[in-house]
């Protein structure tokens, strides 16, 4: 082998990252070795620091360096809506999009019996406790539109069904800003199947036609 053992070990470590294959791992390792020593020192110390000081928020499960996390302690968030997500990555996507101002609850897993994955009972109990005692008017179960997402959705739904809260799920269909003419056949078919009743706004709010 023409590559020294430590470099090879570094490549192997990089290749364990999600979405990183052998070639990208090699590029990462070689890039790192070509940078000044300060860069790798800073990277190593940041990784250690983040690892030592980051922990899940005791309320929502978000990764944070302070408890409660910035989202849970933000007084300007809408405390009436709770969005239940499978993982922190989904939460970051919604936060970065800036489309939701309520609070979150991270399940920290999904239901997939064939992969041996399930939701931790203590996490489900915690969600139920938070949902009933948190003064929420609506719970959004934001799981993925897949078989595993559906299984997770029903597991969460079952745990919340006796709370009497309004429970909703994310919609799917035509992309906003797009045109019907450019939508692919599968999206068009799914949009037609998930069509909704027309609601006409008037001075009294919205009226179902």
């Amino acid at each position: 082998m023409s590559i020294s053992e430590p470099v090879e070990k570094l490549m192997k470590l990089f290749s364990r990252f999600p979405g990183v294959g052998d070639k990208t791992a090699r590029r990462f390792a070689l890039f790192l070795l070509q940078q000044p020593g300060e860069f790798s020192d800073e990277l190593a110390s940041t990784i250690s620091l983040v690892r030592e000081n980051t922990f899940p928020c005791s309320i929502c499960g978000n990764l944070t360096t302070e408890d409660p996390c910035p989202v849970c302690s933000d007084p300007f968030r809408d405390r009436g809506i709770l969005c239940v997500l499978e993982n922190v990555e989904d939460m970051i996507s919604i936060e970065q999009a800036g489309v939701f101002s309520g609070l979150y609850f991270i399940l920290g897993g999904r239901v997939s019996p064939m992969d041996g994955e399930d939701l931790a009972p203590e996490r489900i109990a915690k969600l139920r406790e938070y949902a009933t005692g948190g003064g929420f008017r609506e719970i959004i179960i934001a799981t993925n539109p897949s078989v595993e997402g559906d299984l997770t959705f029903y597991a969460v739904l079952d745990s919340l069904k006796t709370t009497g809260l309004r429970i909703t799920r994310l919609a799917f269909g035509l992309p906003l800003g797009g045109t019907i003419g450019y939508a692919d056949r599968v999206t068009l078919h799914a949009s037609i199947e998930s069509r909704v009743d027309v609601r006409v706004p008037d001075r009294n709010g919205e009226r179902k036609e």
Partner: peptide, 9 residues
């Protein structure tokens, strides 16, 4: 395991 969720899917 409980089979209710898979039946609903």
């Amino acid at each position: 395991r409980n089979l209710a969720a898979t039946a609903r899917v």
